[in-house]
């Protein structure tokens, strides 16, 4: 209980504070899949493209656009082609902001 309280109290700082306090990670397929993303797009810092504040729906649309653009040559195009609709939806809902 005390642990939970301490964690809850620390949450407001999580977004902006870089390496100081890291949120616990989950153990599920969403966490496994998004392990591929955070090396370039970790929350709260400089990244190739920051995902901070991006809506899940927007992220999903972007990933699908990368995957479905047969002429696209960027690294994201080449990687997105390896993911199914379900995987893209799971990644987007994990990394994107949920609509309120």
């Amino acid at each position: 209980m005390r642990y939970r309280l301490a964690l809850a109290l620390s949450l407001p700082w999580l977004a902006g504070c870089g390496g100081l306090v890291q949120a616990p990670m989950a153990l599920d397929q969403a966490a496994l899949l998004t392990a591929s993303c955070s090396g370039c797009h970790a929350a709260g810092g400089r990244a190739i493209v920051s995902l901070d504040g991006m809506a899940a729906s927007e992220l999903e649309a972007k990933l699908l656009a990368y995957r479905n653009d047969a002429d696209g040559g960027s690294a994201m195009h080449r990687m997105a082609r390896g993911y199914s609709d379900e995987q893209i939806a799971l990644i987007a809902s994990t990394l994107g902001e949920r609509a309120e």
Binding site: R4, L7, L11, L14, A15, A23, P24, M25, A26, L27, D28, Q29, A30, A31, A43, T94, L95, G96, E97, R98, E100
Partner: peptide, 22 residues
Amino acid sequence: ELSKLTSPPVSRRQLLAALSAL
């Protein structure tokens, strides 16, 4: 089994990760 581990939707993904671990 796994879907039970996922937390309810919240606005910040950090919170989501934290809650799902809890």
